[in-house]
């Protein structure tokens, strides 16, 4: 359970990283189109439509994986610590992250937003990923460092 939790969470970060990179490429390409300055990269980048679709796919995959990861985390916490929710800073951050990407996923799914803003949000959203992944581990006291995760894995 803990292993699935760790694996899915990490994979969701990878998907969000992909969304971040694709979002960045989208913004670069769009900037060139808007400013009518076709730089060296212009001929190499794929179309905005394709970037937008890959971006959505990455956000969907990341959101799905994060949901599984969080779900397993909750169950794991219940099994190991006897409580569903320990209000650990990393838990709070991850829940916030999940809510943000849920919102982003819904607005893109319903086409309320598309293109520019989704790309921008997926770039900004990655700072939250970094905060959850690194910040909550190193800057705040947490019961989630990887050493203890490993220890728990070996215990369970």
């Amino acid at each position: 359970m803990v292993l699935i939790h760790t694996l899915c969470s990490l994979l969701s970060y990878v998907a969000f990283l992909v969304a971040f990179i694709i979002g960045l490429l989208f913004l670069m390409q769009e900037r060139q189109l808007k400013r009518k300055t076709m730089g060296a990269l212009f001929h190499r980048l794929p179309s905005l439509d394709l970037l937008d679709r890959i971006n959505f796919l990455a956000i969907s995959a990341g959101f799905g994986l994060l949901s599984i990861g969080l779900g397993c985390g909750l169950v794991g916490s219940r099994v190991i610590l006897g409580r569903w929710w320990v209000a650990d800073p990393k838990e709070v951050a991850a829940l916030g992250l999940w809510a943000c990407y849920l919102l982003l996923w819904i607005v893109r799914l319903r086409s309320t937003l598309r293109g520019h803003r989704v790309a921008l949000l997926s770039v900004l959203g990655f700072t939250l990923v970094l905060f959850t992944f690194l910040g909550a581990s190193w800057l705040l006291p947490t019961s989630h460092p990887y050493q203890s995760t490993l220890r728990r894995v070996s215990v369970s």
Partner: peptide, 8 residues
């Protein structure tokens, strides 16, 4: 070329 950069 520009249209293809937008729509593929």
């Amino acid at each position: 070329e520009l249209a293809e950069k937008i729509f593929g």
